[in-house]
Amino acid sequence: MLVAGLLLGACVEPPTTPLDTPAVLDIDDVELPEVAATSVERRAQQVTVRVRSLGCEQFGLGSGFVLADGVVVTNRHVIEQPREVTVNTWDGRSFAAEVTGVATDSDLALLRLEDPGDLPVAELRTVPVERGEGVFAVGYPGGGPAQVSPGRVLGMVDGTVLGEPAEVIRVEVEIAQGSSGGPLVDRDGLVVGVVFAIEVDAGIGLAVPVETLLERLDAGELVAPGAC
């Protein structure tokens, strides 16, 4: 028995394979600051423009956002009876724009930039917003610098009293005159609405849902703007 035990003990050799090297650091565990260059806020700011419209009787300032092919979406009321429309970007570039159409039953208008260059473009979300969802309103309140305001969707409300064909988005977010036409974007940076009004007493923002915009774009239900 003693001999067998001794023999058995003699069979145990040290392992020759190298030890498993422990992970030095799991990159997912490292707390890195948000990379601003790719942040949703920055991207949203880059696609949002300031719209200046010289009309027959008024000088209008508002916001808008860029789509593919130099198309800019804004509010109809920002560019009433336009004589000269200019678009300013957040970083100081200016573009002459032409009003290509306004919606007859919604506060929406489309502009086209003469030479959009490499302007980044916004992406539209096809899925409706949900109550409580986090969003950002981007625009140029007061005609001032670009501003990104976080908030959340309060719900949908009948838009017919406001001249809209369907429900509009009620959103708890800081907006002001000059924000009109700016995009309401979700946490992924997709446009879910077009800011167009404020409930003055409650300070609640209202936005035309992007579905209404898509319907107008698809159906081509846009007309020429009014002339002087």
Binding site: R42, R50, R52, F59, E84, N88, W90, G143
Partner: peptide
């Protein structure tokens, strides 16, 4: 980058307002 962007925004705002005035 944030500070530079703030500066760019401020300058862009000045330029836009100057264009407003010119208009």
């Amino acid at each position: 980058v944030d500070e530079l962007e703030d500066r760019v925004r401020a300058l862009a705002d000045e330029k836009a307002r100057a264009e407003d005035t010119a208009t």
